[in-house]
Amino acid sequence: MKNTMMSVAEAAEKIEAGAVLLLAGSEEALGQLPKGKWIGGTSVYFVTETGGRVDRENVFVTEIERATDARAVVYEGEDLPNLTMNRFDNGLSMILIPAFSKAHSEFAIKGAEFPGLFDQPLMGWITGVHLEEIGVKTPKVFDGATGQAHEEGAAVLHVALNDGAVADLDILNLFEQDVAADKISFSEDGFGAKTAMVNGEEVDFAAYLTETGVDTQLPLVANYAGMMVNVSFQSVDADKGVAFYAPVVAGAEYHIAKPTGDYAATFAARATGEGASELSCNCILNYLYGELEGKKTGNFTGPVTFGEIAYILLNQTMVRLHVKAAEQAAVA
């Protein structure tokens, strides 16, 4: 795959040439593009070859060169659980969902139960806006087939891959559970919690976090059979409780994460592979807390997002997708 920051005019040329594309950019930039085989999502934060930056003019373009066909579909409301329908026999699906939408909540809480979810790679992100424009502008997704922007629903690009091509979906999560720290669990799924079980005792969760001085720039981490899954803190309020950027799952065992140290340096040390030819997205919280403006994340470039998707919703994680020939996969 090719990843390039380019002008609207250059992206338009690619679209008109029939390329299968995943796009990220400001609403104004994406709104200028012609119809074609693409979906797009709003973001103005990017990690590029020259480092992290805000860019409202250009669009980040990922071209899936091994694609033989693609179809864009917007799924919303009762149709959302059907998002794996209309797939090609050999392929993958890209998904973009606007932050703060009903589709965002529903996918986060119910997505792991959607039929066929695991049958092909599903990779994508939650679209956003400039942090200073939250409440002023709404995150959006664009259906390239119609050119329409949507504040609701999931824009999915089902992609057919040529014979022998395989898609490899993985994550890089720098956060590990601090298993020496308190064991935390919740009685209900949700994006918020007023109480939690801490080492078996029910506590007022906001009060617990404040009294113990937990660094809420670090996420809660659950262990999914060896995959570390983060839930990031959005806010801690004595009256309203604690809000998260992804739902906590009832019955899952969480620990607060260990600090990563210098995020960019730790990332560069742990990131392996040919990042330049992979599609990746990284979390806005990593961009902010890791001070990624002006800094690179190895060879990995891509949009900075309000949530990441590798089958399910993730937080403070980099998701990476590589489409390669089957013989390359076998050798690896």
């Binding site: 994550i171 999914y224 060896g226 995959m227 899952a252 089958y311």
Partner: peptide, 24 residues
Amino acid sequence: DSDLSAASLATKILVTRLRREARS
């Protein structure tokens, strides 16, 4: 609660969900 680190992402996520549902 065995670790399946060598497994694909899809397998790990699905097994985790099924473990949780079977436990409850």
